[in-house]
């Protein structure tokens, strides 16, 4: 039982990490558009990345609501 809950948690962690890789890839392309000038995120990059994740998840939730309304 302990092992089973460990496996379930691990599977969830893996899904979240994998989704983080996709989100980072997409938001990097959208937000970090100029040439690289330093190894840290400047204020503009950082705000854009946070907004990118939030807005993508807004769209995600809207799509699922839209499709589930259609089905009824």
């Amino acid at each position: 039982a302990e092992l089973r809950s460990f496996i379930t948690n691990e599977q969830q962690r893996t899904r979240i990490q994998s989704q983080t890789h996709n989100l980072t890839d997409m938001c990097w392309k959208k937000c970090v558009t100029g040439p690289i000038k330093s190894g840290t995120l400047d204020k503009g990059d950082s705000t854009c990345l946070a907004n990118c994740v939030e807005r993508f998840l807004d769209v995600n939730i809207a799509t699922m609501k839209h499709l589930s309304n259609m089905r009824q």
């Binding site: 938001c27 959208k30 807005r55 993508f56 799509t63």
Partner: peptide, 17 residues
């Protein structure tokens, strides 16, 4: 849908939709 519509409708993500 998420990938294509996010790309098309939200070119610069702001603090809300």
């Amino acid at each position: 849908i998420n990938d294509n519509c996010f790309d098309k409708c939200i070119p610069k993500p702001g603090s809300s939709v």
